[in-house]
Structure formats: C-alpha cells, structure tokens
C-alpha cells in the first residue's frame, strides 16, 4: 500500500473504453432527470403562478422529497423499477430536480416586471402569446439558474447509484474501494467534477444565446 501511487496513469489508458461507457451512462442518468423535471416544472410552475394556492402545497411536498436521502429512495424504488436499472436512479433524481426547478419557474415568471406585462397586454398580446414571447424569455435567467443547480447536483448524485448497481462513474468508486486501489476513485472524482463544470459552462453559454438583450444592454 505504501508503494501504491495516488494515480497510475497506465491504468487509465488500459481501461479507457470502459471509462468512456461509464461516462456515457453517467451523462444519460444525470441529464434525463433534469430534462424530465423541466418538462414537468414548466406547466406546474405556471399553474402555481396562475393559482397561487397551489404553490405552498407543491413546494411543501417538494421540500419533504428533497430532504429524503438519495440512497434511501433508490433502495425503496428497487422493487418497483428493478436493481441496477437506470430508472432506479432517474426517477428519484427527477424529483430532486423538480424541488429546485418549480420554485425557479415560479420566481422566474414572478420576475417579469408588471409594466412589461401590461405593455404586452396593451399591445394586444393574448395570454398564450404573451407567455411564450414575453414572459418566458424574461424568466430565462432565473429558470436557468435553477437548471444549473439541478444539473450539477444531479451529476454528483448519480454516483450514489453505484451502491444499488447503477451509478455511471460511481462504479469506479466501488471498484477502487473493493480492490483498495485509489486510481479509479481519483479518476471518477475528477471526471464527475469535470462533467459538472462542463455542463455548467454549457448552460451559461445557453443563457447567453437565449438572452441576447442582456449583452446588448451591457455593451450600450
């Protein structure tokens, strides 16, 4: 053990195909929950803006869900979704993402200034068009801030799934521990963090593309 270096570079080269497939699996299991959650959070969030009484109960339930330890939820789902299945990881992570995204959508739409909304009404925008072409674009920065938090947490949480047999790069942690061999663990941690940083960077770039006016304003 004394002779064992923290990282053996040749191990990475030899196992690269395997690492790549774990990485791909990891990305799928981390990204799908955020996509699903966004698809659910948009209508649910908009409904909560329209009917205010919906908001408190929804957020209350989501806060409870958010406090449940991921490992516990993975385990409880095994009888339903199966051991070592992607769904066992994707379903709970979708709920965690929802807990972040619903408040983000509600805050985003609430961040539209009243005078902007009134101008849109005065210009003859009907509710649906006003929502799509005025309110949602203005809500983008706040919603995307939520998407960034949800994505980064999702990427790091997937690895816990390794304890129930499906954790993408998390498998490297289990592998390294069982063989008392640090290299896979270090590789796994570095790749998970890099993945999170890359995803975060992509979302920041997406925000720049989706909100060109914020750049124009800064340049002016």
């Amino acid at each position: 053990m004394d002779e064992e270096p923290l990282i053996r570079w040749d191990w990475i080269g030899r196992n690269w195909p395997n690492i790549q497939s774990l990485l791909a699996d990891h990305v799928v299991m981390a990204v799908l929950p955020v996509v699903f959650a966004l698809l659910i959070a948009l209508p649910l969030g908009l409904a909560s803006v329209r009917w205010r009484w919906l908001y408190q109960p929804t957020v209350g339930v989501m806060n409870v869900v958010y406090s449940l330890p991921s490992l516990a939820v993975f385990i409880v789902l095994i009888p339903v979704t199966g051991l070592a299945e992607r769904a066992t990881v994707i379903v709970p992570l979708t709920f965690y993402a929802l807990a972040v995204l619903i408040p983000a959508v509600v805050d985003g739409v609430a961040s539209v200034p009243a005078h902007v909304r009134q101008s849109a009404v005065a210009m003859g925008f009907r509710p649906l068009r006003r929502l799509v072409s005025v309110e949602l674009p203005i809500a983008v920065p706040v919603v995307l801030a939520g998407v960034r938090v949800a994505t980064v947490s999702s990427i790091s949480l997937v690895s816990v799934g390794a304890l129930v047999g499906r954790g993408g790069l998390g498998y490297l942690f289990i592998d390294g521990w069982q063989r008392q061999f640090p290299t896979p663990i270090v590789v796994g941690i570095v790749l998970v963090v890099l993945l999170a940083v890359a995803a975060d960077g992509l979302l920041v770039a997406a925000q720049r593309v989706l909100t060109p006016w914020s750049r124009a304003r800064r340049a002016a």
């Binding site: 390794a162 998390g170 942690f173 521990w177 998970v192």
Partner: peptide, 19 residues
Amino acid sequence: ANAARALPTLGLLVLIVLL
C-alpha cells in the same frame, strides 16, 4: 459552494478512508 455541489460524496468518502 459551487465546487462542493459538484463533488461526489461517495467518491470523496471512499478515497479519504482508503488513504
């Protein structure tokens, strides 16, 4: 804070205990 959110707990735990 951002870095901490990205750190995988299981990996960190396993690595530190192993070392």
